[in-house]
Simulated scan of single mutants.
Amino acid sequence: MEVIDQWTGQYASALQTALRLTQSEFAGQLGVARRTVAAWHERPDVVISTELQRVLDTAYERANEATKLRFVRQLQASDAAEANADSGVALTVAIAVVTKGSDVLIVCRREVDPSGITWQFPAGIVKPGAPSNAVAVRETLAETGIHCSVHTRLGRRVHPRSGVNCEYFLCEYLTGTVENRDVSENLDAIWVSRADVTRFISRDMIYPPVLRALEEVQ
């Protein structure tokens, strides 16, 4: 269990996200003004007052285990982004486009991504020094129970909506039965026909080399 020695704007914002509350709802739960919560997002390094430290302690202690797990993951993602920023390297996400015959693997996020997409290909944050292809394979297994291997690096871009560096890998299915292993982050994990993938993910949001790879004849 995460032990919070001192609540900062970053920690409070992470708790709000983990609880799946809007800023207004979170403010109402804590008994503070919405602008206070907004300020925490704007100033992640600010140390919160002693009185509100206790209120946040209570909110955290009352949270269920799934919420606490989301809280930890939110902090890990923030730390990875900060580490990349400190090193002068932009945040990178490795994306696995896993195919099995005429099907492709996708997951449904519980929360809407900054890109506005709900259905996505399995992906994971690449920490400094980590090989992107290994992250793509590892995160696919962690999220879906599917073992795969990288076939081709499809390319890299800055996502048009989220602004995150995305590195794409075409992967081959090896073994495993698809299942939603990351229930705190995802609602579902499924195989869909390559021909139907644009019913789940808008065509204009799919990296063109990914589209071309999925549209190729077997």
Rank of each mutant, 00 (worst) to 15 (best):
residue 37 V to P: 05
residue 11 Y to M: 01
residue 15 L to P: 01
residue 91 L to M: 14
residue 50 T to M: 07
residue 19 L to E: 10
residue 59 A to T: 01
residue 18 A to T: 06
residue 44 P to V: 02
residue 71 F to T: 01
residue 22 T to W: 04
residue 2 E to F: 12
residue 71 F to K: 00
residue 46 V to F: 03
residue 35 R to N: 12
residue 76 Q to D: 15
residue 17 T to Y: 02
residue 34 R to V: 06
residue 53 Q to E: 08
residue 13 S to R: 00
residue 15 L to G: 04
residue 99 T to V: 11
residue 47 V to T: 03
residue 36 T to E: 11
residue 68 K to G: 07
residue 83 A to V: 11
residue 27 A to N: 04
residue 78 S to N: 11
residue 86 D to S: 10
residue 52 L to I: 07
residue 90 A to V: 11
residue 7 W to E: 04
residue 29 Q to P: 03
residue 60 Y to C: 03
residue 69 L to K: 13
residue 12 A to C: 03
residue 41 H to S: 03
residue 99 T to G: 04
residue 4 I to G: 10
residue 86 D to K: 15
residue 57 D to V: 04
residue 86 D to V: 15
residue 80 A to Y: 12
residue 12 A to S: 05
residue 36 T to A: 10
residue 77 A to Q: 09
residue 47 V to M: 00
residue 90 A to H: 14
residue 19 L to Q: 14
residue 32 V to M: 07
residue 67 T to H: 13
residue 73 R to M: 04
residue 71 F to M: 06
residue 60 Y to M: 06
residue 48 I to G: 00
residue 84 N to P: 08
residue 18 A to Q: 05
residue 2 E to C: 05
residue 22 T to D: 10
residue 11 Y to K: 00
residue 34 R to T: 11
residue 44 P to A: 02
residue 85 A to R: 11
residue 78 S to A: 14
residue 19 L to N: 06
residue 64 N to Q: 08
residue 88 G to L: 09
residue 53 Q to C: 10
residue 70 R to Y: 08
residue 16 Q to A: 01
residue 73 R to I: 01
residue 27 A to F: 07
residue 70 R to L: 11
residue 60 Y to N: 04
residue 18 A to N: 07
residue 46 V to I: 07
residue 48 I to F: 00
residue 25 E to K: 10
residue 24 S to H: 10
residue 74 Q to S: 04
residue 83 A to H: 13
residue 14 A to L: 00
residue 24 S to C: 05
residue 57 D to P: 02
residue 13 S to C: 03
residue 80 A to D: 12
residue 63 A to I: 04
residue 87 S to F: 09
residue 9 G to Q: 00
residue 21 L to M: 14
residue 5 D to I: 13
residue 31 G to P: 04
residue 5 D to S: 15
residue 61 E to F: 02
residue 24 S to K: 15
residue 11 Y to T: 02
residue 43 R to N: 07
residue 87 S to E: 12
residue 18 A to C: 08
residue 98 V to F: 08
residue 55 V to Y: 09
residue 31 G to Y: 06
residue 50 T to Y: 06
residue 89 V to T: 15
residue 42 E to S: 08
residue 10 Q to D: 01
residue 76 Q to G: 13
residue 98 V to G: 08
residue 21 L to E: 11
residue 35 R to P: 10
residue 34 R to K: 14
residue 82 E to L: 12
residue 17 T to S: 05
residue 33 A to W: 08
residue 80 A to S: 15
residue 52 L to F: 13
residue 30 L to K: 00
residue 44 P to R: 02
residue 94 A to I: 12
residue 48 I to D: 00
residue 74 Q to W: 03
residue 8 T to R: 02
